[in-house]
């Protein structure tokens, strides 16, 4: 009897032994509503993890409050390997620079697990806009600083960061017109309300096909594997600018290292499966298998860069 109790106590004290982990359903929190990239990434990953481990993986959408609700819940969750959060670049690298009072601290509260997806963004123009290239956009902005309107999916979005970054590095200013999400911003660009936009390539894709929107450049450091014909901003003469909308899996700080390693290994395996890659590619999104250390480095680098841009461009939500 005694050994049973001892076994039970040991079992409870170390609920996440890597060998038999997981022994109960796993929760992945998504800070965004169903349909967004964080949600889709969670669901694709969750379904494959359930298959691989025989434990149900539940995706919980906890949208709202700039992602604070889900991020805070993850930061405060028990570090037992049964709660994770599918954060985006905004949650871990932009909001900390943007908001004075943060309910969570990425470094202190969260442990990186694995990178998951990478969605390219583009600088795009309305078909009838007078801009045929990035150089013409910069020239126009220099001729009339602050008089060229650019649509983005919202205040504090990584898209806005790219816009300000572009302005800083070319010594110009733009008129930032934020929308409520990518779809309405893309519709405004397609309808010609706004001549320019910095949007996810998936948002502009249907309008590019119909000929209403023209892509001028991608915002990443290298060309997109889906549309290699689009130049990068750097090639077009805007130095340094390199950003995309990525998502990554994080655990509450204190989650046992063996558990994180096990999950990272499984995620790597899943992200290289052809059908998984295909599902992400359907939305114009790449998978980016990586180690936890690589994710950590990427978060730190992005946070530092974005903090500098936010300060220089004086972006403030309040």
């Amino acid at each position: 009897m005694a050994w049973l109790i001892v076994a039970f106590v040991v079992f409870c004290a170390a609920p996440a032994q890597a060998q038999n982990y997981p022994t109960k359903p796993i929760h992945i929190l998504s800070p965004y509503a169903p349909g967004g990239i964080s949600d889709i990434a969670s669901r694709i990953l969750g379904a494959k993890l359930t298959e691989a481990w025989g434990q149900q993986v539940v995706v919980e959408n906890r949208p709202g409050g700039n992602g604070f609700i889900a991020m805070t819940a993850a930061a405060k969750a028990a570090p037992d390997g049964y709660t994770y959060v599918m954060a985006t670049v905004g949650d871990v690298a932009i909001n900390p620079a943007l908001f004075k009072e943060m309910p969570y601290d990425v470094d202190r509260d969260l442990a990186p697990v694995a990178m998951v997806s990478d969605a390219p963004m583009v600088l795009a123009a309305h078909a009838d806009a007078p801009f045929k290239s990035v150089a013409e956009v910069i020239a126009a902005a220099k001729a009339q600083p602050g008089r060229i309107s650019v649509a983005t999916p919202g205040n504090g979005s990584v898209n806005q960061i790219v816009l300000e970054w572009m302005a800083l590095n070319t010594g110009t200013r733009f008129q930032h017109i934020p929308y409520k999400g990518g779809a309405p911003a893309a519709a405004a660009l397609a309808g010609g309300d706004i001549p320019l936009g910095i949007l996810a390539s998936s948002s502009v894709a249907p309008h590019v096909k119909s000929g209403r929107i023209r892509v001028l450049a991608v915002t990443m450091g290298k060309r997109s594997r889906f549309n290699p014909e689009w130049p990068t901003l750097q090639e077009a003469g805007v130095s340094e600018v390199d950003a995309s909308n990525w998502t990554a899996l994080f655990a509450p700080k204190g989650t046992p290292a063996p558990v994180i390693d096990k999950l990272n290994g499984e995620v790597l395996k899943i992200l290289t499966m052809p059908d998984v890659k295909e599902r992400f590619a359907g939305g114009g999104v790449d998978t980016i298998p990586s180690s936890a250390a690589e994710l950590d480095a990427r978060v730190k680098q992005a946070a530092e860069r974005f903090r500098a841009i936010v300060q220089k461009a004086n972006i403030r939500p309040d």
Binding site: G64, G65, N66, F68, I69, T72, P103, G154, N155, G156, P178, Y179, K180, P317, D318
Partner: peptide, 16 residues
């Protein structure tokens, strides 16, 4: 939407 300021939420993330 236009400025990103949170209004009348009384510090509640749920009301953001």
């Amino acid at each position: 939407v236009n400025s990103g300021v949170i209004r009348f939420a009384f510090g509640q993330a749920e009301l953001a």
